[in-house]
Design a binder for these strands. Structure first.
Lengths: 347, 347
DNA sequence: AATCACATTCAAACCGCTTTGGGTGCCACA
DNA sequence: TGTGGCACCCAAAGCGGTTTGAATGTGATT
């Protein structure tokens, strides 16, 4: 009936009075095809709106032409996090540009291993992206064992064998943020961090401690909170710290959303952010959570998650297509941007 | 080499000394197979860890065993919204439970039409979910024309022909929220809404106006804001309205995040939410943005986006598998939950 | 004029499964 | 004793591409 749905290689070949072999070769850019013929084929393909059937290609080539993202549906902690949507958006851009599909598997986190094994044995994807790496993440050795190409968004402290990753320099970012506050004269600086079984949280804490150490200050457990990254947690953490006998005069929050909570706590106490208490956040540049439109509201260490998605996807496609051999690594530096949420220390 | 990767139907059949036909039938539950044989086959499949190759199944059956979600990568407005991640999580659950894959295509929004056409002609998916329906959404007639089964998350005002959808009763929800505020004695109620080319925003506004009309109050343009759903927009909207000569004593915000902005504005002005200004939000129950852990912070109209994802996926699979014939419709009612952000009117 | 390299093209096998259209053997029934 | 029906199983033909191994024609080389 409708041409757009029915036209296939054989049919096209018949119309051109050529063999399917030649048509296939012409379209796929093989050299052993006469230039004139190639043009004729291309023209006909265009005219009849020929789109090769993906299912057939996949079967014939043995490649899935798809990249998988396994999302553990958290029974314990919430991992369907806001960062995810933006990362996906970045990666997806690259996939479609290269003719790859993006496959999401949402699986209960206790069946994650099985999910990866199935992906392998059914051959549904050519590679996977690993999200939210944890301390000693078991997924990495598993994927190595299975021989599935993969790129980790982040790194997994505790894993010694090499693997491909894209990460922001969390440690350096938080070190700089802390130093920046020191330079402003602050001495008591609170850290409102994510849960520290997540790798990024571990590194951020280290960066924070590095900066303290450089000033010869011992880290104070009272000034460090590790919690779910919600507005409420940010609020409670700030609230508690600000109620201490020696309250912090500056806070570093691990995300925009925690920062919003911290700000609320500050304002609840009748203080003004940027004047009475300085706040620095880490800003992932989420599309629906901008840090101010023109002028940044929060001083922040900034690094685009969407860009990370693009880089990771690029890297993975390179691996899948055999262009990359050794595990690549890409460390993105966060930018420190100055907003209105920080100011000099006032006694 | 490794059995898990190599074992295929032919091989399994050989080991069992049966034809591929019979093995296939046995595994797929066809009746014309001896019970004993079936058991023998099942046992062998288990033992050799046989997983049928998805690519081959897809080609042979002509079904893609996949559902597509096309995400327009907004050049104009940001649509990679936070709601998306949770919806996906819900839908994905259903897909994997039914052996379907979830395919995301991230495409620049000016090539969206082409994306759908390709999906059709390449046969990569069996159906699609339409996200973020707009006024007179062009995607609906397009999909009808292409003959791709689809379910809309939301509805598209202006589309007259029937189509399948899952939506929350936005109109009713906002009407109830407004009435609730009236019952508390409030008379000047501000609406902080999303952009009104989005269908849900149109309906929410109508619900709000319905409630006003029922009290014989004419809607005041000054009390209605339509903006991107960000914290900043919520803040500015509230700020502006509260600075009016006759400021509102209650606000309704279209999302948690706008509500946070509104709250900040209230507190910025030295007022207390729930006492000086009441705020009701619409709460999509996003996993990473809970409205309080035990007691709700905000009074809210609540409806789970994740649940909507499950329902939509279920509906679509029903359509794809031919179990559903006429376009189904599912209207979810939002629940009104009382939190601490609302209180009686105080002059 | 025979030979060879090269450029083009094609027939057929293959990817791994489903499904159509028969077989075959056995038992009940007339 | 022939016949029909049933239960069970199989060979082979797809599905729509890619890829291998030849075949053909042509001009250059000897």
């Amino acid at each position: 009936m409708d041409a757009s749905a029915r036209m296939n290689l054989k049919e096209l070949a018949r119309k051109l009075d050529l063999s399917p072999t030649t048509v296939s070769r012409a379209l796929n850019g093989y050299p052993e095809v006469n230039a004139a013929t190639r043009e004729r084929v291309a023209e006909a393909a265009r005219r009849y709106n020929y789109q090769p059937n993906t299912r057939a290609i996949r079967l014939a080539t043995g490649r899935a032409m798809a990249i998988g993202h396994v999302i553990p549906l958290a029974t314990r902690h919430e991992i369907v996090n806001p960062v995810f949507a933006d990362f996906i958006a970045g990666a997806g851009e690259i996939y479609s540009r290269n003719g790859y599909d993006m496959l999401l598997s949402v699986v209960p986190d206790d069946t994650e291993e099985r999910a990866y094994r199935e992906l392998k044995s059914r051959g549904t994807v050519d590679g996977v992206i690993v999200h939210g790496p944890r301390l000693n993440d078991e997924r990495i050795p598993l994927l190595v064992e299975l021989g599935i190409p993969f790129v980790v968004h982040g790194r997994a402290t505790g894993t010694e064998s090499p693997y491909a990753w894209v990460d922001v320099n969390n440690r350096r970012a938080f070190q700089r943020a802390t130093e920046f506050l020191f330079d402003l004269g602050h001495r008591r600086i609170g850290l409102i961090n994510g849960l520290e079984f997540m790798d990024f949280a571990i590194r951020r804490r280290r960066g924070y401690e590095d900066a303290l150490a450089a000033r010869g200050i011992a880290p104070d457990p009272e000034m460090m909170v590790s919690e779910e990254m919600t507005e409420g947690a940010g609020y409670r953490a700030a609230r508690r710290m600000l109620a201490l006998p020696h309250p912090p005069t500056a806070l570093i929050a691990s995300s925009m959303i925690m920062g919003l909570g911290a700000r609320r706590a500050v304002e609840d106490l009748g203080m003004k952010m940027g004047r009475d208490v300085s706040i620095i956040i880490h800003d992932d540049e989420l599309s629906y959570m901008r840090n101010g439109e023109d002028v940044p509201i929060f001083t922040a260490t900034r690094s685009s998650v969407r860009e990370a998605g693009r880089l990771a996807a690029d890297m993975l496609l390179g691996m899948v297509q055999g262009k990359l051999t050794s595990p690549a690594e890409h460390l993105m530096e966060a930018e420190l941007i100055i907003g209105g949420s920080t100011g000099p220390y006032r006694s």
